[in-house]
Design a protein around this nucleic acid. Structure first.
Length: 513
RNA sequence: GCCGGAGUAGUUCAGUGGCAGAACGUUUUCUUGGUAAGAAAAAGGCCGGGAGUUCAAUUCUCCCCUCCGGCUCCA
């Protein structure tokens, strides 16, 4: 029997088992999914403990073709009828099923492996960030090493985008409610915006997006066609109301910093600009080690601003850009933002889970809403087009994905601490400090605690430090270091200059200062 | 937000209607060491918050907060 057929049969067996144990239950739909199956039930109030009972009953009911040790009920969950949150919630039972017990065990083992990559656990183990109950859900605190990681990424973006002709802006965290009425956010995005704050007699909103602020900078003077395209970039921190149940470590939070940019250009420049930022965006992702991604083209949602004609035009432009870059994409019908369609890139982490990070949007609406303009060749006022884009999406989500992708063992250029220098005895501390100085901007830490070398090595491995440099009498005499490379172990003694060469040669992303 | 589960030391977790426990981590002392845990001692707790039941609640009940797995939504 085909695996999908087995999984399909199991939905029926599950339904039958539940019906037998809980006769008053109403059967909902069931389905085959990746690795297993599920079935929905109405009028069923059970808890985790009942799963075992149901599983046992299923094993009594199966037919000869299905072996009892090749499936397992795994999860109990709620699910809306027909997937619509306005409908009532049903009880969903999930199960996994495979051809053999071996495959089932393998799957369970893989799940265990995946847990080790959980960025929430890594964040705590590596002392990068925490989320504190007293501060609030979805509001992460960045600890020393996490903050360094952020700064590394920020500095990298700063240099890259500056060289690409972006102008950096800094804008406030709140702005008048009236601004958000003009932009359309108040009408179309209200459920994600926090309640207004009253200052004097005026109401203000915590910003859910940066766009209106950038528009206002654009409007601060008269723009000529010669100035376009104008590219504004900002690491802009935004606050959005997210339902409590969706919050998840760093990948879903209520306050986050977008690597946001807005490109103001003429209609003629638009396709070229879009093409280049898309191409460039993919290169940036590659630098961070992401080569696998899913691309989605999200079209007009139910609630939208502007005319259908404008939407069609913008959507076509996005399609052309993808085609020109030979990018495979899938349609996400009605998945656009209220003001425009978009291309989203979902980055896959190393076990294949997709996370929406990069976004590219063609907007004819905000320019109209704010009535922005440039002066063309003939001295006439024209309306520019606005391209919104975020490459990493948000630093929070991106770092979360980064941690999972690398299982916390970040590439050397991103490691908050790149090397530990471990003196064997206190006599060698001075030499260790000399080495630290010689390594310059390489981020090192002197490990001079009163502990054995073995213990420090162990801690270094657990902390996923890229290089552990052990120094003692021998190394002092020969002006060298004993190098232990992460995941490779002891790679032997080398002259300090040779080690420096090795670092710079192997990691071109590191900037020598 | 909704369905199901959970909150005990810095961390991971035992435990009980009647003095609060382990391991790791931390601190101090000893130890001056060569590639994954040297030894000893000490400190560390409003048992998530509030209300109720009880002679007595960390334990039982209710409400709230936070977290986990899903659903819906999303950068």
């Amino acid at each position: 029997m085909k695996l999908d057929t087995i999984r399909h049969s199991l939905t029926h067996i599950l339904a039958a088992a539940v019906k037998e144990l809980f006769p008053r239950v109403k059967l909902g739909t069931g389905s085959v999914i990746e690795n297993g199956f599920y079935c929905d039930f109405d009028n069923l109030k059970i808890s985790d403990k009942d799963l075992l009972k149901i599983e046992k009953k299923m094993k009594e009911l199966i037919k000869k073709e299905i072996k009892p040790d090749t499936f397992k009920l795994t999860k109990l969950a709620g699910a809306y009828l027909k997937g619509d949150e306005k409908n009532k919630m049903l009880t969903r039972i999930y199960g996994i099923a495979f051809n053999t017990k071996k495959e089932l065990d393998q799957y369970l083992k893989m799940q265990e492996e995946a847990e080790k990559r959980d960025h929430r656990k890594l964040g705590q183990k590596l002392d990068l960030f925490s989320i504190n109950e007293d501060i609030g859900a979805g509001l992460p605190l960045w600890h020393g090493k996490g903050a360094i990681l952020r700064h590394i990424i920020e500095n990298y973006l700063y240099e890259e985008l500056t060289s690409q002709g972006y102008e950096w802006l800094t804008t406030p965290h709140i702005g008048k409610l009236s601004l958000w009425k003009t932009s359309g956010h108040w009408d179309f995005y209200k459920e994600n915006i926090y309640s207004p704050i009253k200052i004097d007699k005026e109401e203000y909103l915590l910003k859910p997006m940066n766009c209106p602020f950038h528009v206002k900078v654009y409007q601060s003077k008269i723009r000529s066609y010669k100035d376009l395209p104008i590219k504004f970039a900002e690491l802009g921190t935004v606050y959005r109301y997210e339902k409590s149940g969706v919050l998840h470590g760093l990948t879903r939070v209520r306050g986050f910093t977008q690597d946001d940019a807005h490109i103001f250009c003429t209609p003629d420049q638009m396709e070229k600009e879009l093409f280049s930022i898309l191409k460039y965006g993919l290169e940036i992702l590659k630098t961070f080690g992401f080569k696998d991604y899913e691309i989605y083209l999200s079209t007009r949602p139910k609630k939208f601003m502007g005319t259908k004609k404008m939407w069609q035009k913008a959507t076509d432009s996005l399609k052309h850009a993808c085609e020109k870059l030979k990018l495979k994409y899938e349609l996400d019908p009605e998945g656009g933002v209220f003001y425009c369609p978009k291309i989203d890139i979902k980055i896959k982490d190393s076990i294949g889970r997709p996370w929406q990070c990069s976004t590219f949007q063609i907007d004819f609406n905000l320019p109209k809403a704010f009535n922005i303009s440039y002066i063309d060749e003939k001295g006439k006022k024209k309306e520019p087009i606005m391209i919104h884009r975020a490459l990493l999406g948000s630093l929070e989500r991106f770092i979360g994905v980064l941690l999972e992708h690398y299982e916390g063992a970040l590439p050397v250029w991103l490691s908050p601490v790149q090397a530990w220098i471990i003196p064997i005895t206190s006599r060698h501390e001075k030499y260790a400090e000399e080495i630290s100085k010689k390594l310059g901007s390489f981020r090192t830490k002197l490990k001079n605690e009163n502990e054995t070398v073995s213990k420090k090595i162990r801690q270094g491995e657990i902390q996923k430090i890229p290089y552990l440099l052990v120094v003692g009498d021998k190394e002092m005499k020969t002006k060298s270091v004993r190098v232990r490379e992460r995941s490779k172990g002891d790679i032997g003694e080398m002259k300090i200059d040779k080690f420096i060469d090795k670092i710079w040669r192997n990691y071109p992303n590191l900037r020598k200062n």
